[in-house]
Amino acid sequence: MAIRDRGMMKWQAAFQLPELAKTQRDFWRYTERQAKPIIDEHEAEEFDLRIIYAMEYDHSVKLTVWDDGFTLDITGRIHYVDPITHELRIEVMLGGVERVSFDSIVRVKVVN
């Protein structure tokens, strides 16, 4: 006689409160948040020089962007620097264009 296992159904009774599970996920996500790093004038000038260099010689850049407590990396070629809206337009490898605000940039690295 074979044993019939109900799989994940046997654990469903423990998760009858979806609101509780969502609250716990949100809490753990909130505890992983980081404060926005402070960028001084020297670092901002270094970022500008790296961006100008990458645009002039058509190199890719790897930007680390701060977004609501978390950092994410964007890699691509800088297409346009918009001084009016204070944004960079970056052609990502998938063919799309990302818009990144100057204020959210935490790190700039030139990739050959």
Rank of each mutant, 00 (worst) to 15 (best):
M1L: 09
A2Q: 12
I3R: 08
I3E: 10
I3G: 00
R4V: 09
R4M: 05
D5T: 07
D5F: 12
R6E: 05
M8D: 13
M9Q: 12
M9K: 14
M9G: 08
K10G: 05
W11Y: 15
Q12A: 11
A14Y: 14
F15S: 03
Q16I: 08
Q16Y: 01
Q16G: 11
L17N: 12
L17R: 08
E19G: 13
E19N: 09
E19D: 07
L20M: 15
K22R: 15
T23K: 15
T23S: 13
Q24N: 01
Q24L: 15
R25M: 12
D26E: 15
F27V: 08
F27C: 02
F27S: 04
W28C: 04
R29C: 04
Y30W: 07
T31V: 13
T31Y: 03
E32N: 00
E32Y: 00
Q34I: 13
K36D: 07
K36T: 05
P37F: 09
P37M: 11
I38F: 03
I38M: 09
I39K: 02
D40W: 01
E41H: 10
E41A: 13
E41R: 06
H42A: 10
E45N: 04
E45F: 14
E45A: 13
E46D: 03
E46R: 07
F47H: 15
L49H: 08
L49E: 07
L49Q: 11
R50N: 06
R50I: 00
I52D: 01
I52F: 06
I52P: 01
Y53T: 11
A54W: 03
A54N: 04
M55F: 11
M55T: 08
E56P: 00
D58T: 12
V61A: 03
V61Y: 01
K62D: 05
L63M: 06
L63S: 02
L63G: 02
T64V: 15
T64M: 10
V65Q: 06
W66E: 01
W66R: 01
D67W: 14
D67L: 12
F70M: 10
T71K: 10
T71Q: 13
L72C: 08
I74T: 10
I74K: 02
I74M: 05
I74A: 01
T75R: 12
T75D: 00
T75K: 15
G76N: 12
G76I: 11
R77G: 00
I78C: 02
I78T: 03
Y80F: 09
V81T: 14
V81S: 05
D82A: 03
P83S: 11
T85K: 05
T85Q: 02
H86W: 15
H86A: 10
L88Y: 13
R89D: 07
R89A: 12
R89Q: 14
I90H: 04
I90G: 06
V92M: 12
M93A: 15
M93Q: 14
G95S: 05
G96Y: 14
V97F: 04
E98C: 06
E98S: 07
R99D: 00
V100H: 07
V100S: 02
V100K: 05
V100Y: 07
V100Q: 02
F102N: 05
V106T: 11
V106Y: 00
R107Q: 08
R107H: 04
V110A: 04
V111Q: 10
N112V: 09
